[in-house]
């Protein structure tokens, strides 16, 4: 079976489980911007948690199907409708052939996820297909069980301020002594042009104590790189595998995905978490 995206505004991609084990070949992991929200959408239609699904960024979409389908929207949307009837997010919806599901974007958040029971079939192993109006997307059989009778918890929403745990980074000692205190003591503002590659922050510059070029080294989702202008960039879902700017700190893995909903102009602060090994 397949589903057809009739209309789309903003950016619509298919996000799968991510690519683990190809970092040495220069291929980043990718995957949904908010892995928990995507897993929730999948659970709510009885899919395997990492089944490929739609990720909708700053836009709306309309979906139709030619065979009965079970779908679920997760994320802070402005609303979703089957035909003209408003339906709940975070709850499985049964879509009959010819019926349309419409998802409208929230003004206070960035992304939502739409899972289809069976999971989408991604056409590319090493990139995330961008879906355009009129595209038909095949549905697979990546289920984990029946559609659950009850909906479960909510997903991270569109708050204006986020407080995220950070762990000291590999190059903290490349910065002036004040840098750590500045990092933790500032309400950073999310800049425009933040995307799946990086969340760009504005605030007092983090000044370097060492001026030489850093040899490129490996990055992870959450690594906070500091380019020459001193303004931090948090590596996000599609970050490059290596980079040449020193990493001052790393956002904890279980918190970094909250940035999936960080609109430009919203703020971020950091609280220190101890290094988990000695």
């Amino acid at each position: 079976m397949s589903v057809t995206v009739e209309t789309v505004s903003g950016r619509l991609t298919v996000q799968g489980p991510g690519r683990i084990g190809f970092g040495a070949l220069g291929v980043g992991r990718g995957g949904p911007a908010d892995r928990r929200a995507a897993a929730l959408a999948n659970r709510l239609v009885g899919n395997a948690e990492a089944a490929p699904l739609f990720e909708l960024t700053l836009g709306s979409m309309t979906l139709t199907t030619t065979t009965p389908a079970v779908v679920c929207v997760v994320g802070p949307t402005a609303g979703q409708w089957v035909g003209r009837a408003p339906v709940d997010a975070h709850r499985a919806q049964h879509l009959q052939p010819g019926e349309r599901l419409h998802v409208a974007p929230a003004s206070s958040a960035v992304r939502s996820w739409l899972a289809v029971r069976g999971g989408l079939v991604s056409t590319s192993r090493f990139s995330d297909p961008v879906i355009r109006a009129g595209d038909r997307v095949e549905v697979g059989n990546d289920t984990a069980g029946p559609v659950p009778a009850q909906d479960i918890a909510g997903a991270a929403g569109g708050e204006h301020h986020r407080r995220l745990a950070v762990i000291a980074g590999p190059r903290l000692d490349w910065f002036e002594d004040m840098a750590w205190a500045t990092l933790l003591g500032t309400n950073w503002t999310v800049r425009p042009h933040s995307d799946r590659v990086g969340i760009r922050l504005d605030g007092p510059p983090l000044r370097r104590a060492r001026r030489e070029e850093l040899r490129s080294e490996g990055l992870i989702r959450g690594s906070i790189q500091v380019p020459a202008d001193g303004r931090p960039v948090i590596c996000f879902a599609d970050h490059p595998t290596t980079g040449g700017y020193p990493v001052v700190a790393v956002v904890a893995d279980d918190e970094v995905d909250r940035l999936a909903q960080a609109l430009p102009g919203s703020t971020v602060s950091f609280v220190a978490r101890p290094q988990p090994w000695r």
Partner: peptide, 13 residues
């Protein structure tokens, strides 16, 4: 789970 070699470093995940 994986490792990423670079110029002078190896990132071990």
């Amino acid at each position: 789970v994986e490792h990423v070699p670079a110029e002078r470093t190896v990132l071990v995940r």
